[in-house]
Design a binder for these strands. Structure first.
Lengths: 206, 206
DNA sequence: TAGATTGTTAATCGATTAACAATC
DNA sequence: TAGATTGTTAATCGATTAACAATC
């Protein structure tokens, strides 16, 4: 399956273009040239055009890109014309903040299931979601079509939790635990570790 | 100033090596070959050796790398042999979660100043930090040596807040707002936007 | 039509990887 | 010494960029 010939690094830039185009649309813009978009997004115009050309021709020569049309196209390419239900495992400080975060739903990502192992947390309600026992993972995932998980458990529980998620049909994991997960082919992982980013930054702070 | 000749992509991998080496050390390992490290970190052994060789020779031919020594070396390269004080601006759900997050302090990053604009939040105490009025940014930063900021304000306040931070001596920003900041040369920005990562993942979910 | 801007081909640049000498 | 593994040079690979034809 899948799209074997498009570089992943190209795909990784599409959400950035989409974010910026949404911003421009909210500001009332209707058409934009690759040069103007380049200024906003900080990526060379020729690279933007090359990236888009992998998927087709979305612009009008001499004019630029119709913003609404390009947003539609990018959303379609990225499979964003649907609501993506998500499970979150680990409802500590970070998990709670993510459940409350409005930015997910705004872009079509909805946390519909929250799991934790702590009896004090199980049963509590956060932003309309009642936290379930992680022991119910199998039954809850079985009767859902959730394919994306947010992993916010402590580092020492992350690998085993990820394994359980994958065993129950999860295909993509946004991993907030500071470890490298080992998962089978076909499962996509994206890591969010602010400490790694900070350590990268400090290299440049003399 | 700075190190002009080492590719940024090489620098970006060093924190990953460090994280894995710390993990191995905790498990009682003392020496590791680039091949074994490669398996743990998911990066080819030859690339690990090449990356390290930009900074010197840290291994022993025929043996591998002394883990403690390599950790020390990487920490020194990344300027981690000090506590980095940080300011956080925006103490909403996410800001509060980050203030409570133990992972920063564990790696030598300490939030010492928290600022917000909301009168209901100003004055509250979170994990030992009393939230200050963002209007005090200038005076508070002036009498500190804080060079790193965590930016967790709403998107529409992010650019102006970042400008103010930079005007008061901040040199590195970990940006949690879903916008691209425009900042002067010499200020480093790292973006943490989970939505962009999710949109990248969904591309591969057929 | 003239001007502007896209989409694409070809060249360049830089990163990854293969090969292997050095050496513990 | 023989075996193992590093560190480095050179080759390869892939991504970025320059140039420009196409065309609105």
């Amino acid at each position: 399956m899948a799209k074997p010939n498009i570089p992943d690094i190209v795909v990784s830039r599409l959400p950035l273009y989409l974010q910026t185009l949404n911003h421009l649309l909210r500001e009332g813009e209707e058409v934009i040239s690759s040069e103007e978009l380049s200024e906003q997004v900080g990526i060379p115009a020729v690279q933007i055009r090359k990236d888009l050309s992998y998927f087709g021709g979305f612009g009008v020569k001499g004019k630029g890109y119709d913003i609404i049309h390009l947003i539609d196209s990018l959303r379609s390419i990225l499979n964003l014309n649907q609501i993506w239900p998500m499970v979150i495992v680990g409802v500590g400080n970070l998990g709670q903040a993510l459940i409350r975060y409005q930015g997910f739903a705004r872009q079509g990502f909805e946390i519909v299931l929250a799991l934790d192992i702590n009896p004090k947390i199980i049963g509590t309600e956060i932003a309309g979601i009642v936290v379930q026992d992680v022991g119910l993972m199998e039954s809850e995932l079985k009767r859902s079509d959730i394919r994306i998980a947010l992993l916010t458990v402590p580092a020492n529980a992350a690998q085993s939790t990820a394994d359980a998620l994958v065993a129950n049909g999860i295909k993509a994991i946004l991993n907030y635990a500071p470890i490298i997960l080992k998962l089978p082919e076909g499962v996509r992982v994206a890591n969010i570790d602010p400490v790694l980013k900070l350590e990268h930054l400090t290299y440049y702070l003399s």
